[in-house]
Each structure stands twice: as C-alpha cells, then as structure tokens.
Simulated assay, not measured.
Amino acid sequence: MSDTVYIQPIGLAASPQSEEGDCIRLAGGMVYAHRFVVLVRRDGEIVERWRATRDTIDDVMARLPDELAADAEAQWTNLTLAHPPLELGGRTVRLDQPQVMGILNVTPDSFSDGGQFLDNPEAGRQHAAAMLEAGASLVDIGGESTRPGAPATWEGDEISRVVPAVEYCAGMGAAISIDTRRAAVMEAALDAGAHVVNDVSGLRFDPRSAELCAARGCPVVLMHAPGKGEDPHADGNYANVVLDVFDWLARARDRAVSTGISRAKIVLDPGIGFGKSLAENLALINALPMFHALGQPLLLGASRKRMIGALSKEAPVDARLGGSIALSVAGMNAGVQLVRVHDVAETVQARDVWRGLRDAALTDFSMLPED
C-alpha cells in the first residue's frame, strides 16, 4: 500500500490585501492563492481531502502521517518558490511574469501551418522576425510533426530542416528552443545557436538525450506524453489524469536531476493534447496551479489544438485564435511562466492587458484608509 500527498491551490486572489494577507504569491509571479486542498492518494484512489488557507495549513499538515510530511512540506515550499531568470545567450528571460514562446515549424506536415516555412527560408526568417518584434521571448523551432498519426521523421531530415532555421534566428539575436526528441538533432541545433531543448518525450525517447543536455548545461523542457516510443500519444490511460501527470512529471524531473541536469534549468509541461481526451485536457488546465508544487517553472502549449475545435463547433485550425488566447490567459491566471503559441502578437497583447489588470489589482479600492 503506497500513499502520496498533493497540495492543490483551489482559490486564487487578485491581490494579497483582498484576503487580508491570508494568501501566498504563487511561484513568485503575479498570481496569489488563498485556499488549498491537501489530498492523500492510496493505490490510485483519493482517501483524504482537507481544505486549508495559508493560516491553517500547519494544522492540516499535522494530520499527515510521518511518511508524507516531508513531501507535503516540500510541495508547500515549492508553491511559493520564485524562479531565477533563464539566461539564454545574450537574452534574459524573466520568470516572474508570463513570457510568450513563438512557434516556428519547419516541417512538411505541421497541423497548423502546412509546411509553409520548410522550403522557403525567407518566409521563415520573416515569420521569426515578426514574432520577435511582436514580443516573443523565445522562438521554438521544430522539424518533426508530433500530431496524432504523423509519420516518423529520420533524424538526418530533421537536422537539415532545423539547423538553417536556428542559424537565421541566432543571427537575429533570438533566444532559441529546439523542439525535438532526438539527441543528434539537439546537438546539431545547440551547435548552431539554440539555447533550450524542448522534448515532448521528457528525455525518454532517445537514451542519449539526458546525458547530452547535462553535458551541455542547457535548460530543458520536460513534457508529459504517455507514449515512450514513436507515437507519443499512445497508452493514454489514467486513473486520475491530474494526479497521474503530476506524478509522471515529478519522476521526469528526478530522472533529469539524477543524470546531472540542474533543477534550476528544468521546465515542466503537462502536455496538453498528447494522449489525452477533451475532458482530461480541461481537467489539467483547471488544475494548473497545483503543478507549481513540483518546484519548476511551467510551460503551457495549447495553441490551436484539437480541444479548441471540439469546444467551438469543430472550428478549423486557422479559426482557433479566440480559443488559443482563452487558454493562454487561463495559463496566466494559473501562474504559468511560459505559453507556447502560434499567434504571438495577439497573445502578447492579451498578456500585457492581463498584466495591467494584475498590477492595478494591487491597489485595492475597497480598503479602508489608514488612520
């Protein structure tokens, strides 16, 4: 019989004074959490659930058995952990507010842009420049489609696709992420000027990946996908999708650290759309604040995904801007540090308005004047 513990923020606040200080600043960002539940899970089933606030959490923690106390204390500390900025070449990406990662696909079969940047490097260069000018903090370059049913890509083809894109983005001074599962592609991209490895397999697909990232000292994004082999969408069976993904990401984080990757360079991604149903994707997005308890910055990649079409009369990929913005803002409201999007200018505008509202909320009009 194995027990695990989880601390989930369930009540978010616009400002600390709105709860008279009875809240925490979530992950050092611009979101505050006031109410929480502490869950105990045994053999896949939730067996205890206690509600708490910042002022009563110690009383709830005291109810936990000794074998869960240390993990609960670590999660509570992690929920308030402020993350240092990512130093990416000549660029500094702060993690105390949401940052926008722009997508540049150089594939023949991307679900969103149909390969328009693969054989036209000038178009890719212009697109990257436009994203950076619009306010993208990073450009995420991918040379393999990981949509459901996509054919496997030979690593030689993937390298020939991404390296020119990395080079022209590096020439612009961009902070660059390489979206790949293959160590050879990671290495070629890093050599060409990339700074971050974004692996949808969580460094499981290629056994050399973790060692390579540790040796290069680069930040890594570990994404949850249930499939370990060629199909990342395979084997998506969950007893409780939120808690199962939470546990999976904790193990991925610990595996990465065991290979020599610094915890300060690990970002976690719950993998929206990868081997998950609509209901499971919605559950994960609603539970995003809990994932701060893992102690790492979070990335949300939901732009133009199938779930948006499913919720909007089967809107095609090129008509999912509104849903993409809604999901990005949901991530910001949950304290997510990075949102990965196709529509950079619109998302940056939404982020800036969101940030203005957050700043304004720190001056609470309803407070009584001090004597």
Rank of each mutant, 00 (worst) to 15 (best):
P9Y: 05
A14D: 07
P16Y: 12
Q17T: 14
E20T: 01
I24S: 08
G29I: 03
V31H: 05
V40G: 05
I57R: 06
L68C: 13
A70K: 09
W76K: 11
T80C: 14
L81Q: 14
P84C: 06
L95S: 13
M101V: 13
M101A: 10
G102R: 12
P108Y: 07
G114R: 14
G115I: 08
N120Q: 15
R125F: 13
A128P: 12
M131H: 10
V139T: 09
I141S: 12
G143A: 09
S145N: 05
T153H: 01
E158I: 10
I159E: 04
A165T: 09
Y168R: 09
A170H: 14
A175P: 10
A183W: 08
A194M: 14
S201V: 10
G202C: 06
R204M: 05
E211Q: 15
P219H: 08
V220Q: 08
V220C: 06
A225P: 03
P226V: 04
K228C: 00
E230I: 07
D231Q: 11
G236Q: 04
N237A: 13
A239F: 00
D244K: 02
F246C: 05
A256C: 00
V257N: 00
G260L: 09
R263Q: 10
R263P: 13
K265H: 13
I266L: 07
P270N: 07
P270A: 10
A279I: 00
L284G: 02
L288K: 01
P289K: 01
M290T: 09
K305V: 01
I308H: 09
L311N: 07
L311R: 05
L311T: 02
A315T: 02
P316A: 06
P316Y: 04
G323E: 06
A326V: 03
A334N: 11
V339F: 05
R340T: 14
V341I: 10
V344R: 05
E346Y: 00
T347K: 03
R351L: 09
A360V: 02
P369H: 03
E370I: 01
